[in-house]
Design a protein around this nucleic acid. Structure first.
Lengths: 227, 227
DNA sequence: CCTGCATATTAGGTTTACCTAATTCCTGCG
DNA sequence: CGCAGGAATTAGGTAAACCTAATATGCAGG
């Protein structure tokens, strides 16, 4: 029974719409929401109708044309995202969790902590802006800096980069990346390999390059290396 | 969606049966459960039937004769109680919560933390045995020392005592007691006052005695003062 | 011993968030 | 332009955990 009258389920829909909509906040299709949330498409339609018809609608929804967050929906999505990322940071920094376990715990707890809890862990951590995966933490006011980084998988040119962030979705992947030294802040020298589908990357001042599959490359965001 | 297949609701029933059954684990009536949980008696009957008829029953239940926890029900109740008290301790010690706010937050979070979270906060706190209200924290194995303390309201003789614990039920009461210096470990000199219904207590080496209502006295557990 | 009352249980209904199956909508291709 | 196929929606159903109202139980006192 999450705070603010939203159920856990509603919060998850809002978060999914926010992340799938991307920075441009484009409309999101039912089908992709269904996949993201692991529910049947019919369940999505139902929920969206409910959210759109509420007294203070959290989404804008038109049949057959997808959904978008309303201002208040967006606000709530960012609150939940803030919770998520603060909790991840807290688990990592204060409770010494391994990095690949923070996501699952945060995914559960984000719905149930109070304002006070949020405020206290933020204070304890010195109001961090970035979580341990390299993701920006929305402010209390619901602001989040625009993404500047690009997916490694959408690399326009070969060259030298710095890792901005890594996805926290999959613990397995996270362990692999960790084992390769791939973490936010690490320097990368990237070439497209043979068939042009996978990547040859040299991490930091490592002597040998390693090969990254396109799937892996989709989990990594990079920025041009400074200087 | 709490761990171990139990729902939040089930955990709350188990906890309530445990606390209402007292140390002797006597059978608990539906009505008192209904009051404790704030639900209708009919809801209690339903739930108890469900719990008793499960493949691995969490309670022993006979129509019209109340319930008792089964071995596994008791085990789960103690796990939840351990969560609750560890979380309270953690909020108080690590996150600097005011004492009167820890209960409410713990009441929610106790259902959602993982084994790992439990283990990490316990380690961080040095595996405490006692929470900030003076209550014993069940061990990982599901053991809890037998209560030796008595309710101040059931005081057999006047005299000198040490406060064992105070109830965490009501934040308001907790603030009052705190303001009077009534906290676990404090020394008390107790007399029954005038009509024999309320209590005159002198806290520590305070010069003036204060008057405690019978309601207040029911929130305080005491032990004979050493020496 | 039997009745009255509190307690407990049954019956039937609600809400939330799912599901499957059936139907409708839209769009892009031939 | 018309229709095939995928996407979306509707229809109808389930499981939890509640509720209220109606009924049954059992015990305590007259």
């Amino acid at each position: 029974m999450p705070q603010r009258g939203n159920t856990e389920s509603v919060d998850n829909y809002l978060k999914a719409i926010f992340t799938l909509g991307g920075p441009e906040e484009r409309r999101v299709a039912s089908k992709s929401l269904a996949e993201e949330l692991g529910v049947a498409p019919a369940s999505v339609t139902n929920m969206l109708q409910k959210l759109a018809l509420a007294a203070a609608p959290l989404v804008e929804y038109e049949r057959h044309r997808g959904v978008q967050l309303s201002a208040s929906g967006r606000k709530r999505a960012l609150e939940v995202l803030r919770h998520h990322r603060l909790i991840e940071t807290f688990l990592y920094e204060v409770l010494d969790y391994p990095l690949d376990e923070v996501h699952e715990e945060a995914e559960r707890l984000e719905h149930f902590i109070s304002e006070r809890f949020e405020q206290r862990i933020a204070a304890k951590l010195g109001n961090p802006r970035i979580d341990p995966h390299g993701h920006s933490i929305p402010t209390l006011e619901g602001e989040i800096p625009k993404q500047r980084s690009i997916l490694l998988s959408e690399l326009p040119t070969e060259g030298e980069f710095v890792i901005d962030s890594i996805s926290d979705r999959d613990a397995q992947t996270l362990r692999m990346l960790h084992a390769c030294g791939i973490a936010p802040g690490a320097r990368l020298r990237v070439k497209k390999s043979s068939a042009g589908v996978s990547y040859s990357v040299r991490v930091g001042r490592a002597s040998k390059a390693l090969n990254l599959s396109p799937e892996m490359a989709r989990e990594i965001r990079i920025l041009p290396a400074p200087m």
